[in-house]
Nucleic acid binder design. Structure first.
Lengths: 334, 334
DNA sequence: TCTCACGATTGAAACGTTTCAGCGAGGTGG
DNA sequence: CCACCTCGCTGAAACGTTTCAATCGTGAGA
């Protein structure tokens, strides 16, 4: 079916080795020979067989990113990964696990079998916790946005603890003394955010209500949390685990008759594009996912996991509080 | 580094062929032998080399999906693809081109080189128009959600023309006689939607204002269009090219003091999860992307592009109008 | 006892590249 | 004129699987 180097070599009247050289080491082939070979390649529609190439050379040009699902946040993250990867001639494939462990496992199996250049894991805690060590024996792994307890691997992450601190301080300065935290309890980085909030709040003498959501932290989770707070007694400010939930919170609170930020201030995390565009532009903790992604690629290529002398690094990037219109002074207690 | 079948065979005291059989044809290997081999595999942490396997057997278990970017719509589409693919033991990798032609080309090159089982193209018009034929010679290609003029390939698509018809009829029944269409002019399926609207509107005696947006059809495009309509004279209803723009439109119109649907009715396309959750739940043309994705996989596996006797099919799925709260009766002319 | 069939296992040839040692031809310095 | 180098090219051995024809026992049927 598809023409191979053998046929190209025959038609061009050279050896297979020369064809290979045209592809991989053009400097060593005389100019006219190169042209002739390239022309035959075009005529025959030659596409080199990646499997054979990789089998022999042992190198792959593919980086894989594992997501829970395709959302705005991961879109930005991927952009960062891709930009840095393409500087090195690498290509990025993504896959969505939908929080399905079996699916994640089959993805990782295929990646190991393909001997990909590297794997970026972004919340694959279920599998990584158990088979992380085995995985790392077969492919360089970098954790993005997910700090794991045992520091025996590379990772990049945003400083969520500090981000939470900034958010609570901001609300404190605005006079808020009773706030809510909205997020799941079983997603690691959400726990980090919650801890930072509780710690800072207790230092500053602020009361914190916890609203627990399911792990699927999208718009509806925020809406659900809004109704729950409405029933339990609305605080003067709410910090939501990410921007999507914050948007859901904002919409639902408005429907319930609250004004933002007059009655309730709202803070999100992530600073997705949408946050700035919301009806009431969202105050949010920016985590610069593209930067995290790019840094992860750097770690990957710096020999993480492939060289024995490599010491694993945890890169923590500062979070930043972006103040917009969804936060304002606490309404004085009547 | 990584143990191969050779070492497994040695330690288990069998031949390489038997190890291969354990992996690929367990029925022909005696039970005790199988167990012994599997145990050695576990001990050695054996992971079979996908490149070698594929080189020899010529089959791949990977399907690739090419996107402009990771958004809610493509997340749903991928879910459909993945579900059907995993029924056949296939794995789905996605990549985002960000509308960058060079990037798309390098992705497609890698896919062809890897001899993937199939490629699903979802708006890669720039590249497909030019090098589609060459691409199809090297991998089965199915177009999703993008009907191309020359019908020499397989595709699945939603019937956007009919969807538009439903939307305009709905608005007509509500008494709207002057509406706007918001969308780009250089994205094929957006053009199909626009055509359907113009055609139906002209049949029903409805006037249509066109607001042209850039090809990046996200929330801000809708906000931008809202301001433009505000300046040019607000119609009583607006049809936006997708739900994200519709949400942007809704938010911006509210900020400008319009009530939805009291002053202006809004219709979107796609029926993303968010559409139902918006402050004013969105009336929208559902296109069931997961269904399109699943059907595309079926076409791929039915021999599309691989068998000579195969006749290319264009599968068109009906669109459906989901009426929610963002559309209402036109305010009587004062 | 001989033959046959059948189940379990194996040897060796691919698959399409990359890579490296090596070869001839032509040129340069001594 | 010889030795030596460089340039452009080539032959052949990998890489780690899959696959198919062939082999080897073993038990059944004649």
């Amino acid at each position: 079916m598809a023409a191979g180097m053998r046929e190209v070599a025959e038609k061009a009247g050279v050896s297979i080795a020369t064809v290979s050289n045209v592809l991989n080491r053009p400097q060593v082939v005389a100019e006219p020979t190169q042209e002739r070979v390239r022309e035959v390649m075009r005529d025959l529609g030659f596409v080199r067989n990646g499997s054979a190439r990789q089998l022999r050379s042992g190198t792959s040009e593919v980086i894989c990113v594992v997501f829970p699902g395709f959302s705005a946040y991961f879109d930005e993250l991927t952009r960062g990964v891709e930009e840095r990867a393409s500087e090195h001639g690498l290509v990025v494939f993504a896959c969505a696990t939908n929080d399905d462990t079996a699916k994640e496992e089959s993805y990782l199996r295929v990646m190991m079998e393909q001997r990909v250049r590297g794997i970026l894991l972004t919340r694959a805690s279920n599998v990584f916790q158990s088979s992380g060590p085995e995985l790392r024996r077969h492919a360089p792994v970098v954790l993005v946005d997910l700090e794991s307890p045992a520091h025996d691997h590379c990772s990049t992450a945003a400083d969520d603890g500090h981000g939470s601190e900034l958010a609570v301080q901001h609300l404190h300065e605005l006079g808020h003394r009773r706030i809510a935290w909205v997020g799941p309890t079983d997603v690691p980085q959400m726990v980090t955010r919650a801890d930072g909030i509780h710690r800072t709040a207790s230092d500053l003498g602020i009361e914190v209500l916890d609203v627990v959501t399911p792990p699927k932290t999208l718009v509806p989770a925020g809406q659900f949390a809004a109704r729950e707070l409405h029933d339990r007694g609305m605080p003067s400010a709410v910090i939501c685990g990410n921007d999507l939930m914050a948007v859901g919170m904002e919409m639902e609170l408005k429907s319930l008759g609250y004004s933002i930020p007059g009655d309730v201030s709202i803070v999100g995390y992530d600073d997705i594009e949408f946050a700035a565009a919301a009806t009431v532009p969202l105050t949010t903790v920016a985590r610069h996912p593209a930067r995290l992604g790019a840094a992860a690629v750097d770690l990957l290529l710096s020999g993480c996991g492939t060289r024995d002398d490599h010491t694993h690094q945890q890169l923590i990037f500062p979070s930043e509080l972006i103040v917009r219109s969804s936060t304002g002074p606490a309404r004085p207690v009547r």
